[in-house]
Nucleic acid binder design. Structure first.
Length: 404
RNA sequence: GGGGGGAUACCAAAGUGGCCAACUGGGGCAGACUGUAAAUCUGUUGUCGUAAGACUUCGCAGGUUCGAAUCCUGCUCCCCCCA
């Protein structure tokens, strides 16, 4: 394997990266790696508590992929042991512990999804229970002597919880130490993480130094802002675009981001070249609409391929712009002569979660049958031979009513 | 070990015997508008019922009362302060 020059590597590594601590050390590591023809060990710990990956996670995973493409060695740590603690970073509550069965299950789905971004052939996967689970209480005590309480509680998340009279369990203090111990064990050269992970990653440096190792370089990626345009992308805020989302959802959700996020999405979650990125910057100002549509297309194509992306674009134009019902709407069949209330059809097909909700939607004008608003909850229809009607409930639920 | 406070719908938070299916904010949903599933504005937000109305819900289990989220008893869980 021949490595590109330090400058070329840096250009790629720095794309979208918020902070490199410290950059000088990274340069030295890269230089040495070229000289000795030895790949750097790049580490990412993942938390198998919430296995549904979204574009926010993809920012870091894609960065890892870039390291792989540059020829470096990537190690993905499944935090099966640390999941027993739960990363307190940014949390306002103690996390509920998971059972080991759940953790295993989650780890598998995590790897499945991460495999869409990383090169699975070149990824070393390790489980941190393998070494953390072996430590003796004595080792843990020694480890915990390297951090002071003052340093822990000056962290924003902890100090807030403390002030709010929210509980902080002692074991949560151990999380950064456990994560740092991973770096010691794996002798990592670089660790990736979101900016909110800065504290945890820096602890790794301390512990490595204490162990007599050369400390790792910390590479901090920005937190991707979610589709709501204000908070970080997260499943719990429901502002996320999932890696497993359907092409239609992916396309639609991508379009819903505010315009001023277009550039950073191109930078952080797509694979367009650095040159193209420069052009995007100009284009956003002149033509936000099409730039955003292209972004949605590019993202959808990355995860579902060209054809699916085209179909998703068409679907969006049809349903959202023209407010038509899509071709692939589910078909509901009743036999000829059946007379039934529309309310019951919607209920039977579970297009809403209760009859109350259906009625509410009807009252608010959200239920349409063949382009005609149905506001009367008692509305009945009779199925006639050979008839097909289109039903729309709310913005995004459709069905075709057919006579059997 | 001692003392104090708390548990209310998806979340936060009012309510302290009938006017409570429960104020308000966030979130969600719908409508209008828009290049957009963004922003904004408006409406809506327990279940069943076309409706009238009925039923279930305020940590859990009992009790008092014509009537309880609100009062009493026991239980569970949580937080703070002092040591």
């Amino acid at each position: 394997m021949k490595f590109p020059s330090v400058e070329e590597q840096l250009a790629i590594i720095k794309r979208g990266t918020l902070e490199i601590v410290p950059e000088e050390e990274l340069k030295n590591k890269l230089k040495r790696s070229i000289k000795e023809n030895k790949p750097l060990r790049v580490k990412l710990g993942c938390d198998p508590t919430r296995p549904d990956l979204h574009l926010g996670h993809s920012v870091i995973l894609r960065k890892l992929r870039q390291f792989q493409d540059l020829g470096h060695h990537v190690i993905l740590i499944i935090g099966d042991f640390t999941a027993l603690i739960g990363d307190p970073t940014g949390q306002n509550k103690t996390r509920p512990p998971l059972t080991s069965v759940e953790i295993k299950e989650n780890a598998r789905t995590y790897l499945d999804q991460a495999g869409k971004i990383l090169d699975p052939e070149k990824t070393e996967i390790v489980y941190n229970a393998d070494w953390l689970g072996e430590m003796r209480f004595e080792d843990v005590i020694k480890l915990s002597s390297s951090l002071t309480v003052a340093r822990m509680i000056e962290r924003d998340d902890f100090s807030k919880r403390y002030k709010n009279n929210d509980p902080i369990s002692l074991h949560e203090f151990l999380y950064p130490l456990a994560q740092g111990q991973d770096s010691v064990f794996l002798r990592s050269d670089i660790e990736l993480g979101g900016t909110d992970q800065k504290f945890n990653l820096l602890v790794g440096r301390d512990l490595q130094k204490q162990d007599g190792q050369e400390p790792q370089v910390c590479l901090l990626m920005p937190l991707l802002v979610g589709t709501d345009g204000s908070m970080k992308m997260s499943k719990s805020y429901d502002n996320y675009i999932g890696i497993d989302d359907s092409p239609n959802d992916m396309y639609g959700k991508s379009l819903s981001i505010p315009d001023d996020l277009i550039y950073s999405y191109y930078e952080l979650v797509t694979d367009i070249s650095i040159d193209e990125l420069k052009r995007v910057k100009e284009r956003v100002k002149k033509d936000p609409r099409n730039t955003k549509h292209d972004l949605a297309f590019t993202i959808t194509r990355m995860y579902h391929g060209e054809e699916a992306a085209k179909a998703a674009r068409k679907h969006f134009e049809k349903t959202v712009i023209q407010k038509d019902i899509p071709d692939d709407a589910p078909v509901i069949e009743y036999s000829a002569g059946t007379t039934i209330r529309l309310l019951d059809i919607i209920g039977d097909a579970s297009l809403t979660s209760s009859n109350g909700e259906t009625k509410r939607m009807m009252k608010q004008g959200g239920v349409t049958l063949d382009d005609e608003r149905i506001e009367d909850p008692g509305f009945e229809l009779t199925f006639k031979e050979g008839e097909v009607r289109s039903l729309k409930v709310g913005k995004r639920k459709f069905a075709r009513l057919k006579t059997k």
